[in-house]
Design a binder for these strands. Structure first.
Length: 256
DNA sequence: TGGAATGTTCGGCT
DNA sequence: AAGCCGAACATTCC
């Protein structure tokens, strides 16, 4: 469920309600390895809640609590822990339930920000983006999914950005013209900002911490639309596999 | 029944 | 060495 716009939506709901509160304790139900890496977070005050790529970071007096929602993770404010609740963050006055059906997500205390990630997809400057991209070999779609290259994009928004930029997902990254790279840079920014404005995409089960869904899925032009007509030219949207992920594109609007 | 699902990581190969 | 591939993780849904 969670790419940059969904994570940003989660942070915007959580920040005003959690900032300044003390994390009294964490009730852990998960048996995953991360479940034993949260101890230092207990008892600390939350200085700030922010997004870092696809991570939700709770800055503490010492270090931070880093939450990654994986595919099906949710943070729910004052909810009843259901069968898939993996942990409950107990603050003074507020509870946050960490629910995750597939358990691909994690929640752990770290001494500092996660390392090894590229610049944030919403913050990277056009010139830097172009320079980074031109230094790379390989398929553009795979590169956009690579968090070490750029942090925040996932499968939905990579496809949507490539469509909006008119670039084929199998295009060789380092061989794109400067002009098309700049077009991609603005498409990424535009689609992410529009998605945030709609509260993200609720394809199957994404909900914000108040249990509200996002509505950007209505604006999807290619993701999940295989076989349907392109909204720009009418051609059938195609679905192929790139980097083992479903990849949707218009063969007419996104020529190789 | 098999396949696919908003993600990441690891081992092996070229 | 960078990039690609397949598998693994775990659960649900169609």
């Amino acid at each position: 469920m969670p790419e940059l716009p969904e994570v940003e939506s989660v942070v915007r709901v959580l920040a005003p309600r959690i900032t300044g509160r003390r994390l009294q304790r964490i009730d852990v139900a998960s048996r995953k390895p991360w479940a034993r890496m949260i101890g230092p977070a207990e008892g600390q005050q939350v200085r700030r809640v922010r997004r870092y790529g696809k991570y939700i970071l709770f800055d503490l007096d010492e270090g931070l609590l880093a939450v990654h929602l994986g595919m099906t993770g949710k943070l729910l404010v004052n909810a009843d822990p259901g069968p898939h609740a993996r942990a409950v963050l107990v603050f003074d006055g507020v509870n946050v339930v960490y629910d995750d059906v597939r358990q691909f997500g994690s929640m752990r205390w770290l001494p500092h920000e996660p390392e090894g990630l590229g610049p944030d997809a919403l913050e990277v400057a056009a010139a830097d983006f172009a320079r980074m991209l031109l230094a790379r070999k390989g398929r553009i779609k795979a590169l956009l999914l690579n968090q070490a290259f750029l942090r925040g994009l996932g499968n939905i928004y990579s496809d949507e950005a490539l469509f909006r930029a008119g670039i084929h997902p199998l295009a060789e990254a380092g061989r794109l013209s400067r002009r098309r790279i700049l077009r991609l840079h603005s498409a990424i920014k535009q689609v992410l900002e529009q998605a945030i404005a709609k509260g993200g995409s609720s394809i199957s089960d994404y909900l914000d911490p108040d249990g509200r869904r996002g509505w950007f899925q209505i604006e999807h032009r290619v993701y999940g639309r295989a076989g349907e007509p392109c909204k720009r030219c009418g051609a059938r949207i195609r679905r192929i596999l790139v980097a083992q992920r479903s990849t949707h594109f218009c063969p007419q609007c996104q020529r190789k």
